[in-house]
Design a protein around this nucleic acid. Sequence first.
DNA 1: AATTTTCACAACCGCAGCTCT
DNA 2: TAGAGCTGCGGTTGTGAAAAT
Length: 336
Amino acid sequence: MGRQPCCDKVGLKKGPWTAEEDKKLISFILTNGQCCWRAVPKLAGLLRCGKSCRLRWTNYLRPDLKRGLLSEYEEKMVIDLHAQLGNRWSKIASHLPGRTDNEIKNHWNTHIKKKLKKMGIDPATHKPLPNANEQNQNQTRQDQQLHHQPVELEEPNQQPLQVDFDPKVDPNKEPEKPETSLESSTITEEAKEEDQIITPLFDTMELMNGFCTDEVPIIEPHEILMPCAPSSSSTTSSSSSSNSTNFLEDLQLPDFEWSCNYNDNNTITNNNNNEDKDDDNNNNSSMALWDDDIIGNRYWLINEDDDSDENQVFDASLTQFSKMFMESESWGYGLF
DNA sequence: AATTTTCACAACCGCAGCTCT
DNA sequence: TAGAGCTGCGGTTGTGAAAAT
C-alpha cells in the first residue's frame, strides 16, 4: 500500500497566515529543520496541511529570501531566462538568489508582461507583436537605445527578442554581462530538454559570487549561529528602542562583520552530528542570508505585543537561537 | 468622504512525476 | 509491480491596499 495520507483535511485552516502561525512554523523549522512536511503541521501545532506549510516557508518565511521589488537587473534576467525556459518559474528562480518561483511568476504577470507588451514584444514568444504599431516600435526603439540595444523589430520572424540592459542601472550589480550574444542565448531544442546546457545570458553564479539559490543550504538548527559580538554602536541603537517594531531595522545589517569565526563557539549546535561533513560548506554558504530587506520584512517576529503569554507559543524545545530570535531585546545580529 | 476600480501578491488548486509500501 | 501518497510546479484565484472617480 502507499504512504499514509499527508493530513486529514478536516478542520484545517485556510487563507492568510497569522503572525502566530508564522512564528510556530519558523520556530519549528529552526528547531527541527525541514523534515517531511506531512508531519510539520502536527508537530508545530498548526491547523494547516503540510503543503500549505511548505508553501508558506518556501515563498515567504525562508530566511534566504529577498523581499521587495525585483531590481531592474533581476527583471531583465527574468526576461532573458523566460525567453529560454518559458514559464518554468522554478528554473528561472534558481538563477535568482533569494527569489522564489511564485514571486517571479507574480512579477512577470503583473509587471513584465505589461512592460513587454508596451514595448511591442509578445511576452509569450519574446518576439515582436505582429500588430505592434509604429508607435510601439518607436517606443521600443527608444527603450532599447537607452539600453544600447540594437533594434530588431523590423523582421518579425527572427530570433526571440532579448532585452539587454546596462548593468550600471542596478546599483546592486555588479559585474559585466558575459559576452554571450543574444542569439546564442536562444534556447535550443537540446536546451529545452536539458536545462544544464542552457547558457544564461547572465552567468548568475559568477555574478553572485558563486552563490545560487539551488545551493542555498537548508537551514538546520545546528547551522544557526549565535549573534556576532556586536559593535557597541550597533547594539546600543538597537537595544535602546522600547518599541520592538523597528528593532531589526535598527540593526543596520549591511554593517555586518562577517569576519566572525563561526567555527568557534558562535555556532549553536543541537547535538546533531550527522551534518558535520557539511560544516565547512554551510559556514561559507550561509553568508548573505537575512539581508536587511529580509529582516525588515519580518515584522511579525518583532512587532507583536510581546507579552509573556505570546512566548508560550514556543515550547521548551526551542533552540537558544530561536528564543533569542523572538526576544527582540536579547540579541544582536549575525548569521542565522 | 464614499465608492469603485486597479494593482500587487499571498495562497490555493490541480496536475505530473517521483517515492514508498 | 501496482497502487497510493508525497512533493514540486505552474496556473489561477482571493484579498487587502492604493489610486481614481
